[in-house]
Design a binder for these strands. Structure first.
Lengths: 312, 312
DNA sequence: CACGATAATAACCAAAAGTTATCAAGACGT
DNA sequence: ACGTCTTGATAACTTTTGGTTATTATCGTG
């Protein structure tokens, strides 16, 4: 059943006049006659009674007319929805995020939702590794993971932190990571924030320090309190620093101390939903909105900007 | 938006493989590629991600796929409904009937409804003249009217009655209508059954008899009771005759005494609903099923058959 | 009875959709 | 690392379809 014929049929059913209907449809009367006749052949029954005194709907025509109008409306609707989906205005967006983005992501999503109310956003809390898998499998559109990202992803760095050394006053002669060797260490529990734990371990390894774990804690303030009470040293993000405690801080001048989170996505052509979300993200970060909607180059990293976007 | 392209799209969305989908659609792979590309151009966004590793739906494609399947189903449904309407299996049937068919018509309609449950039958009680107008205006499909019908209608005679003279014993020397002159007459009230009244008047006129109306009644048995008690003569359908009363009956050998009802309809090409109804009617009458579904000749009149189908 | 209106038909033309053959790019197995 | 295979795109060509104009048949109507 041809679509154009259906549209012609509806117009004719309203006009009940081949000439007028043909005009409205911007085609000639014989063309319309042919279309209708073809439709009638397909259906196997006349849709109109042709009478020189006037054209009128047949029983079959009357039945079809009722359905056809609705059908055309639905079709147009579907078409528009598809177009809007192409512009990233309707559809779904699956976002993965982890503990480090509990503050940032919901805020961006709130903005995104108000701007694109017809996008169904689904948030999935999962660790970095799982996000990478889900992204590759297409189960996620965007992930927020610890950087660096595997290089088959496009990246938008979102927040950068740097670990600093927190020392009890008694250990104020420790100046660098290397001096940490043998000192007891307060670390974040691997349970909840294993990537922080992992990074601490990796950082120690980078300095050939064998960490001696004195205590595991769940929150940075707790760790600092323990440091202040002399339990041991700790490594915390700079934003967690508290100066009201008797603690000595040391910068760590090593890339392994950098701790950044970025939005990553598969660099696929023409998926506007992702681009739209990244635009919201960019605005939220107050940074330049460099997001390649249809190119797979990695946007310039705004390193050094956007501190303190997370931290507890 | 082309319909065939939509169907192709749905198949491809299920298969996610141009070659296989093309096979299922019985066309070549380039043709399918072209169709999809055209659809994408119309919509303005890619519907699939083409990757040598495999084809997958884009965001827009996923949205459209959801709608398209439903759309196609509805379309097929509408198509089938139209076909069935063409065969007179769905739709509406507007029937007009009057007092004389109160017994027959509902029985036929019951049969018709059980056979064509998806035809919405609407019954309209209206007198002959009004039925004729409604039929011409297309507001009725079938009417049951007193015959003869105007000759732009097709007719199926349904019941024939003949008026007979009912005389009180005291008037048994009356032998023909002509002898009725001056005799008091018991007639049916014009209110309820004006066509019977009218026919009695017409019958009298045919014999140049000026009727002298002694009494109007509502039912034939009442009329006969009055006749038996000597109030006057009466004209009743033969089927109303009662032999347990002291009444003398006389046949009237004149066409004006004939009183028949027929189903009439506009002889329009290819309206199966009407034909189907007439088939039911024919079966109910137990007569030959001569009903011209697509010709406008009047079916052979089964005169003399089908007595007693109405009468009160 | 000629005229006007309406839809069907015919002849023709252009656009489309289909076909086969071929190409380019990755995945894959050796 | 290199042919091979798979997959989809492209090109050239053909067929089909849909559209146009011109004409005809058939009614109502002045």
């Amino acid at each position: 059943m041809d679509f154009r014929a259906l549209r012609s049929f509806v117009v004719l059913a309203n006009q009940l006049h081949f000439g007028r209907a043909a005009n409205l449809l911007h085609l000639s009367q014989p063309a319309l006659s042919k279309q209708i006749r073809k439709l009638e052949d397909e259906i196997g029954a006349p849709l109109f009674h042709r009478d020189t005194a006037g054209t009128s709907l047949s029983a079959a025509g009357a039945v079809l007319a009722k359905d056809a109008e609705d059908l055309l409306a639905r079709c147009g609707e579907a078409f528009l929805r598809a177009q809007r989906a192409g512009r990233g205005e309707v559809g779904t967006l699956d976002i993965g995020f982890g503990i480090a983005t509990y503050e940032l992501v919901p805020r961006v999503i709130a903005r995104f939702r108000s701007r694109y109310p017809e996008i169904h956003v689904s948030l999935r809390d999962m660790p970095t590794a799982e996000q990478v898998l889900a992204l590759r499998a297409g189960r996620l559109d965007i992930g927020f993971i610890r950087l660096p990202a595997p290089d088959d992803f496009a990246v938008r760095p979102v927040a950068t932190e740097r670990l600093i050394l927190a020392l009890p006053p008694a250990a104020k002669d420790v100046r660098t990571m290397a001096d940490l060797h043998g000192l007891p260490l307060v670390v974040m529990s691997r349970e909840r924030t294993h990537y922080i734990f992992d990074q601490v371990i990796a950082l120690c390894a980078a300095f050939h320090v064998t960490p001696y774990i004195a205590q595991e804690v769940a929150e940075f303030p707790t760790a600092l309190a323990l440091v202040a009470s002399g339990v041991g040293a700790s490594l915390v993000p700079r934003s967690a620093r508290r100066d009201d405690l008797p603690i000595v801080y040391r910068e760590i001048d090593h890339p392994a101390a950098d701790w950044s989170v970025g939005a990553v996505w598969r660099p696929v052509e023409g998926e506007c939903v992702v681009a739209n979300f990244l635009a919201c993200l960019g605005e939220k970060l107050g940074a330049q909105r460099s997001h390649p909607s249809s190119s797979d180059d990695i946007p310039p990293s705004p390193t050094g900007s956007a501190h303190d976007e997370f931290g507890r």
